[in-house]
Design a protein around this nucleic acid. Structure first.
Lengths: 340, 340
DNA sequence: ACTGGCACTCTATTAGCAGGAGTGCCAACA
DNA sequence: TGTTGGCACTCCTGCTAATAGAGTGCCAGT
């Protein structure tokens, strides 16, 4: 009998009230604010059970109840109807994103949009190189022994890297290198390139072998090993909403986590298509984010995923709203990318 | 007689102690910690004068004294011997920066280095486009009607922008456009380009006029109007050192200011060569930073400036150390750029 | 011009007390 | 069996009063 419908309803009420008021919620207040149709005493009994099961807890004897991470989890999994975005929000998305001119532009607008709509810290990963395909590789002579390698991907990213050549290279030679490299790599998924780059060197005419080797090593290093993932961040000031009460006293750990790109990438990495993932408090692998929740989603044209985006906020957050917003924005950005 | 040597010495002692302990400093503590050679009573008289002059104040009657913004200013202007960097710091700079491979890489390393050495929030502006010269412009066909314009500057920045052409462009045409554009603009300061771009269109053969006009407008827009300045940020967690006592209670305004790129650019913009600027508290034009200080410096190869860098911290900061570090790092980065 | 002494002011800390919110439990009830 | 009202209990909160301590300002003396 552990959890009948009313108990779930009580849990929902507790979560909703606590999210709103930021204060432990008691039995009396509950029946006042929600039409539960029972007396405070009954609610108390239910709360006792919920507490036993680990979904809520009291900060101290004779205070109201507060949801635990498990409580939020249950709330999200079983008690949340995804609320559709308000027209105002839809319009905000349109207004914000229209006229984006660039991949950079899209990413920046997206992250600011997310931050503004959810009133949380927003993170947007640039389309992942490893999931992109090469559209074009360009070699630009910078000096006699230096080339600038510019890679353009099908997702619109442009990456550049300086290549220090073993000796002077003539213009014709650059031309030749560019031709070969594009021949081999254009249109290929970046994930597949390592072996191709290898072949490139092997098949290369002996007199250009040295130059090509050099180029190849930079290619490998840039595109694969140092898998140059980038991301954009916005909404930091939102961390200070609701005092320092969220994040148990100090936001230092959260700031630290947000500063570590690697950590953030893990957070919004490896997502499944068309789903929105919610990590609540302790579920987070990263220690510094034990007091925070992360709502993230993959985005990309169609059903594929080229990157992740999401928000980071206190465990005490408006999950239904946040989830809906993150999902909507992810979808919108995906469609935007599909148009190109 | 307003400020004899001993009074200045007292001010210095107050600043140093307060910076270190974060607590109002009293006359007794002063004579204990510094060899002033006079009694607490004498120091009290001096402090009364300093307070009258507006250099220090008491948080409340019968508390110790705390420096005012004016006090810090006097301290910085007249009482600060630039302390040379410790060998450890010099080594840290070397170790951190060696092996930088890219402009991006240099900027990122620099900003992290600054944050770590000063234990403050660090800001580094990418070499300003308006102060750079065009090294090369590349046009890469993306589709029949779309080109990717890639600009490489002499400071190593690479900017790209999508150009939507009025109609299909053949490869040969692209080739021609690229040639003309480079002919005209390569080697020119970006600040000088607007008129040149104008000429470019005028001198253009009639059959390419439409395409060139389109390209020109993107060039102008990207390079000049939307003067695409970028910057990197690091060390956010440092804001939480010393509790929320610094920044008078809330770091929200500071976070807000740091999120506004425009604001930050103003902060570290228009610097004079080879100087380090210090803005203390109220001296700051930006309201949100009234409770913070900014130490900034221009950097660039030789005596020229191509960008700014600096740190943002509480007014209660170690000015001599911070100034020395900022200066050293700026110089180092300048030298690094000069090598390329 | 400096110093020691002293009274004064203000803060920070502590303890005690009353009020209130909220609970847990129990006995009664449908 | 599930629900309810009643009641004692716990613990937080806010208030007041009392105390100790730090630091000052001023004055008279050297």
């Amino acid at each position: 009998m552990s959890l009948d419908d009313r108990k779930l309803e009580v849990l929902r009420a507790i979560v909703e009230d606590y999210v709103e008021t930021q204060e432990p919620v008691g039995s009396k207040a509950l029946v006042d604010r929600h039409k539960l149709g029972v007396s405070p005493a009954t609610v108390r009994n239910d709360m006792a059970v919920l507490e036993e099961e680990g979904y809520i807890r009291q900060p101290h004897t004779s205070a109201g109840r507060v949801p635990t991470d498990a409580g939020y989890r249950l709330f999200v999994d079983r008690l949340t109807k995804i609320k559709p975005l308000s027209p105002a929000e839809r319009r905000a998305i349109e207004r914000f994103m229209v006229g984006a001119v660039d991949l950079d532009d899209v990413v920046h607008r997206t992250v600011r949009l997310l931050a503004q709509l959810t009133r949380q810290v927003a993170v947007v990963q640039y389309p992942s190189l490893s999931r992109s395909a090469v559209r074009h590789l360009e070699l630009v002579p910078i000096s006699t022994t230096r080339l600038m390698l510019v890679m353009i991907t099908d997702t619109g990213r442009v990456e550049q890297r300086l290549v220090e050549m073993p000796g002077p290279v003539a213009d014709g030679e650059v031309w030749e290198l560019r031709l070969r490299v594009n021949e081999k790599l254009a249109g290929q998924k970046l994930a597949d390139t390592p072996s191709l780059v290898q072949k490139l060197v092997e098949e290369c005419a002996i007199e250009r072998r040295a130059a090509m080797t050099c180029l190849a090593s930079v290619l490998l290093e840039t595109l694969v090993e140092r898998s140059e993932e980038r991301l954009a961040l916005a909404g930091m000031p939102n961390l200070t909403r609701g005092g320092v009460l969220d994040f148990q006293g100090t936001l230092r750990p959260v700031l630290e986590a947000l500063e570590e790109e690697v950590i953030l990438l893990k957070l919004i990495g490896d997502l499944e298509p068309r789903t929105t993932r919610v990590l609540i408090g302790d579920e987070n692998q990263i220690d510094n984010l034990r007091s925070a929740s992360v709502v993230s989603s993959g985005y990309g044209p169609g059903a594929t995923i080229v990157g992740g985006l999401g928000v980071v906020g206190p465990t005490r957050m408006d999950y239904p709203g946040t989830i809906a917003t993150v999902r909507a924005v992810a979808r919108y950005v995906g469609d935007l990318l599909a148009q190109n």
